[in-house]
Design a protein around this nucleic acid. Structure first.
Lengths: 147, 147
DNA sequence: TACACTAATTATAACGATTACAATGTAAGA
DNA sequence: TCTTACATTGTAATCGTTATAATTAGTGTA
């Protein structure tokens, strides 16, 4: 099933005139199979065995290409570095304030909020982001560390 | 009324053993009167007339102090730099993707979402953040610029 | 298959936001 | 007033990300 996602993603890229390079293929494949919302550096380090000469810039460049193509979302949740998420269907994020772990969860849309906001602010609303913060099971059991 | 907010904030700081310096007073005052969700640099530049010798580090240090005291929230919405928001009562943010303008709006809580998420993910949920993205009136009328 | 054209990759330097550090200054209680 | 711990300052360092220029390699076409 992730094979289908990969094929769809590659087709989507081709149709917009983006070349399929081995690096792009590998980054996409990694993102589809990863559930960990990796940082650019995570991706870089995971692929350096396969592509010893790959540059960090290539990872960033391609993540931007994928973002513009709507294939991945960039998550800026307060950590120093962005995390990237392969777009499947709409979902929200539950984030552990302690260890940074991000877990997906689903909830029926918040269209009503968008309508109200548009009415009140006069903005043309495109989309929204909802993130929940808390502590995961693992971290609840660990002793608290200094902030 | 913002006088009251300032006094409350100063009292809150004092009660936790934080010293009230002229710089802290000025930064708090600026944040309370500002509706623009300023960046650290905004604050720095706004106060350099009054405090010609103030360091950028002071602004960052104190924003962290205020954040730990629960007086301000740090917003990381994908721009290169964080924006800071004086905490009044709960509200959400409508963000212009074009010019970065942030407008507050209110909506009855999303407690139901928190409960569901806690049930599904096993997290202990502390709070949530909701941001809406779109285009403000001003930018709708301007010609689009390249991304 | 070979060619040519253009985009992609690489390596590295630059950038900008934020933080660390050490020296100096100062708020606030005794 | 004195003292002491905390704040501020100035600067250097750090780290994520982007820009640049040279080299390499997809991909459509002959």
């Amino acid at each position: 099933m992730s094979e289908v996602q990969l094929k769809d993603a590659l087709d989507a890229l081709k149709s917009t005139g983006v070349r399929i390079t081995p690096q792009r293929h590998a980054i996409l494949e990694y993102m589809i199979h990863s559930t960990a919302h990796p940082t650019a550096d995570d991706i870089y380090r995971a692929l350096e065995k396969t592509f010893p000469n790959m540059s960090v810039a290539t990872v960033y460049n391609n993540l931007r290409v994928f973002r513009k193509a709507g294939l991945v979302k960039e998550l800026t949740y307060g950590d120093s570095s962005s995390r990237f998420d392969f777009v499947t269907h709409d979902h929200y994020h539950m984030i552990c304030s302690d260890c940074g772990k991000i877990v997906d969860f689903h909830y029926p849309g918040l269209d009503e909020v968008e309508h109200l906001a548009s009415h009140v602010t006069g903005f043309q609303v495109d989309y929204h982001r909802l993130e929940l913060y808390g502590t995961c099971k693992d971290c609840v059991e660990k002793p608290a560390k200094a902030q």
